[in-house]
């Protein structure tokens, strides 16, 4: 499976409060949440993002709250993948559980700039920067996560057990 899109680039410690501020958590409707995605760090994001676009950020992406609304808002915005040097652990779990692809790749984070056109091949973990003509290699998902992803998220994975 391949995705391609333009990059929105952010720095270290992008927390769940800026991904989706708590003042909007009185709903869990994905489209409503998407309207306010990244609002407190990048007010223009929701207006500019197009289906397939990619978020690239540095260390500890998604730190803070356990709100699943954060990956839900990103996914509903049309973002096809988040690449970061590292992810906060609850965000990492939540993203996998709801089927938002995320990749840890420091090399890609260093090489990719905002606005670059990037293609990602999930089956090989290859990230291609079409703007700069560079490729980077991400860590493939560990086996148990591949199973959850192959089942299209944790809930469908569990459904098979009942």
């Amino acid at each position: 499976m391949k995705v391609q899109g333009r990059v929105f680039k952010y720095g270290d410690n992008v927390d769940t409060d800026v991904i989706i501020p708590a003042r909007y958590l009185n709903t869990s409707d994905p489209q409503e949440l998407a309207k306010h995605c990244m609002e407190d760090i990048d007010p223009e994001f929701a207006g500019k993002v197009r289906k397939g676009d990619i978020i690239v950020a540095d260390k500890n992406f998604g730190c803070g709250s356990s709100r699943e609304h954060a990956p839900i808002a990103i996914k509903a915005s049309g973002v096809s993948c988040v690449i970061a040097s590292t992810f906060a652990r609850i965000f990492y779990r939540n993203a996998i559980n709801i089927g938002l692809p995320i990749l840890e790749c420091e090399e890609a984070v260093k090489g990719i700039d905002a606005g670059d056109e990037v293609e990602i091949d999930f089956s090989t973990g290859t990230i291609t920067n079409k703007t700069k003509n560079e490729t980077y290699k991400a860590q493939p998902f560990p086996e148990f996560m591949q199973k959850i992803i192959a089942s299209d998220g944790l809930i469908k994975y569990i459904q098979q057990k009942f």
Binding site: S66, R67, N97, I98, L154, F162
Partner: peptide, 18 residues
């Protein structure tokens, strides 16, 4: 430990978590 809503749902159903 903290987890998200999907893990909570799975935990309520199965009594287990990975």
């Amino acid at each position: 430990t903290g987890i998200g809503s999907t893990d909570m749902a799975a935990g309520m159903a199965t009594g287990k978590a990975w």
